[in-house]
Design a protein around this nucleic acid. Sequence first.
DNA 1: CATGGTCCGTGACGGTGATCACAATGGAAA
DNA 2: TTTCCATTGTGATCACCGTCACGGACCATG
Lengths: 238, 238
Amino acid sequence: MRAPYGLNILDNCLSCPVREEHLFCNLSVHAGQRLNDIKSTAVYPKGAMLFIEGQQPRGVFVLCAGKAKLSTSSREGKTIITKISESGDILGLNAVVSNRPYEVTAEMMEPGQANFIPRDSLLQFLKDHGEVALRVAEQLSRNYYTAYEEIRTLGLSTSPSEKFAKLLLSWSTKTQQTDGSSQVKLTLTHEEIAEIIGTTRETVSRLFSEFKKKQLLQLKGSTLVIRNRLALEKIVQS
Amino acid sequence: MRAPYGLNILDNCLSCPVREEHLFCNLSVHAGQRLNDIKSTAVYPKGAMLFIEGQQPRGVFVLCAGKAKLSTSSREGKTIITKISESGDILGLNAVVSNRPYEVTAEMMEPGQANFIPRDSLLQFLKDHGEVALRVAEQLSRNYYTAYEEIRTLGLSTSPSEKFAKLLLSWSTKTQQTDGSSQVKLTLTHEEIAEIIGTTRETVSRLFSEFKKKQLLQLKGSTLVIRNRLALEKIVQS
DNA sequence: CATGGTCCGTGACGGTGATCACAATGGAAA
DNA sequence: TTTCCATTGTGATCACCGTCACGGACCATG
């Protein structure tokens, strides 16, 4: 099998390395096999749109490799990024289940691969396998929690520095070392960070300067070092 | 049956006037009967807390009568109201399904009544009635959509006037007359409106003045008259 | 090496809305 | 009625951050 964009293609969900941890894992052999049959897989270049806000839902995408950003925009062009999805995540589930338009746009941030499950097949599958429907409900309520985190950040954290500190902390917890410090590979542009915390590119730039001066963070090339979690938590407070 | 707080108590879901339109409606006779058995009902005064943000979920509440406000707060006391729930709404569903703490506080805004369904009973019920689980998933994804509306309002609409116009429009559509105008009974304080659109009491006050001057709205006692939807939509834009 | 494009740093400026303060209003209860 | 408390109107002030502008850094490509 060819490997465009420098990727190895995974063609069988049953042996996918990420399947253990996520939604469609530990299914009965029968259900797993059926799921494997109704999915199709594809490889995407950087910048590819899996789906666009407002489109009628065609189906869900299971991200196998690569990162994708989920965003929503206003007519005037202002954009907020609501989530950076990683491999194993299911994209478009809400739209498919409720049969409403996709509420976000999903764009690949790097070359990757995703499985596609058409809407009708998925819904039929869920009807036939009731135990999975409850799993889906659980996943949806997890998504809901994430959305509420976002609401709290946007609505309760007033200042950009507070939101920036919050973002740094969320990165930091994912990669925490034994000594409390953490290193993060910085793949986002200032512009993208601004779209996450709801401010402007310039403000993010100034925040980096300010936080560097206050010893809250450190930059080694494109690696971000966070030492002082406590000080960050103090800024966040909420 | 006694009627505290001036309310008539509804003691049977099968004959509840609001059941037709909502989640647990049109169930099979068997399922409906079982649901009626596992629920208990209670009457609440104004200001009663059905549950509080951060508590472990005990169960869901089906609001039968009265309004409730859902809100989330930061430690410093800043509060945002995310939804005004009305009769028929299910409260606490996400927390119960995902077994995470309630993500909001639910407070009665006026005397009312709610049915309570304990967590364990509900989950068992959903397992036994797989067709209802998919319904629940649909409800959850509707909630998710509402949350995303909130995210868009908070993140994309920058100015208070934009958010205020958005709120007025949402009220207006619920009560639209044939001639396009609409009348809304204003039950919220400026403070509460401020907590909905994420600003301060004073700003809301000034917004009312400004919009009155611009002929966008009109106040007759506690009744709000909205005539000029188009002008409001122009302010919203997004 | 030159060129073009994206990304980043930083100064200057101005508008906006939060904050504080206080008066006015209005409704409920004694 | 009088009192009391919650709510509302509005002025003055000012920090903050969005916007504009420009220059420099970095990187790919020809």
